[in-house]
């Protein structure tokens, strides 16, 4: 029983994490970047780690 509850809790936590991630991208406008989930502010976006992104 405990094992089942723990498994459901882990799966539930994963689902909540992904929903939160989706919420950030849609509601807060974060692009998500390669792995960035910081905020909607592009200047802090980790994806801009790529320098020389354009001439």
């Amino acid at each position: 029983m405990a094992e089942t509850i723990l498994t459901i809790a882990i799966v539930g936590a994963a689902a909540v994490y992904l929903l939160r991630d989706l919420y950030r991208r849609f509601r807060r406008g974060s692009c998500g970047g390669c792995s960035c989930d910081k905020c909607a502010d592009e200047k802090d976006c980790e994806s801009t780690v790529y320098r020389n992104k354009a001439p």
Binding site: C31, C34, E42, S47, Y50, K53
Partner: peptide
Amino acid sequence: GCAVPGVMAA
């Protein structure tokens, strides 16, 4: 690379 900064670089 990553398409996200690539798209933004456009």
